[in-house]
């Protein structure tokens, strides 16, 4: 079936079989490999993308569910080339290690800051608890989100 939506601000029309996951559509059909598959069952958060600004797990989302919607992937965050304040903050606080969870964490944090521009550290931990990271122990990730929030004020 034919599917039309916007990804990172660009309109896209593609043919997809009904069962295709949004994750495969993004990674394989559109070449947006910044969205990662860590578990394929909605537990790790590595495939987090924003659909109309809300965090969604691309592994549990059928491609057809984004018909007419706006999808933001990590590639769309610095589309002009200039790093987004969240991306800059992850660099500044050493919040990146292996980096596999990083795109999902950054997009989840992006949604958090849209909902709550001045979160507390506890609120950041709560909001990001669906995004697993095995390297950092989260401290410098939380510092990055708080730093980005600070910079945006």
């Amino acid at each position: 079936m034919t599917l039309s939506f916007r990804v990172n601000g660009r309109p896209v029309t593609v043919d997809v079989p009904p069962g295709r996951r949004l994750l495969d559509l993004l990674r394989e059909d559109l070449g947006l490999t910044g969205t990662k598959e860590g578990c394929g069952e909605g537990e790790c958060g590595a495939c987090t993308v924003l659909v109309d600004g809300k965090p969604r797990l691309a592994c549990l989302t059928a491609a057809i569910q984004v018909e007419g919607r706006d999808v933001l992937t990590i590639e769309g965050l610095a589309a002009s080339g200039q790093l987004h304040p969240l991306q800059e903050a992850f660099l500044a606080t050493a919040g990146v290690q292996c980096g596999f969870c990083t795109p999902g964490l950054i997009l989840a944090a992006h949604a958090l800051l849209a909902e709550n521009p001045s979160p507390t550290a506890d609120e950041v931990r709560e909001y990001l608890s669906g995004n697993l990271c095995r390297c950092t122990g989260y401290e410098q990730v939380v510092e990055a989100v708080l730093r980005a929030a600070e910079r945006r004020r």
Binding site: R27, K36, A78, L83, V96, G99, F100, T102
Partner: peptide
């Protein structure tokens, strides 16, 4: 000194290429 990681920018941009990419 706390030199920022050299691989971090490609990772926050989603440009780093992992095996399945």
């Amino acid at each position: 000194t706390p030199v920022p990681r050299l691989d971090a920018e490609a990772k926050v941009r989603g440009e780093a290429r992992y095996a399945d990419d």
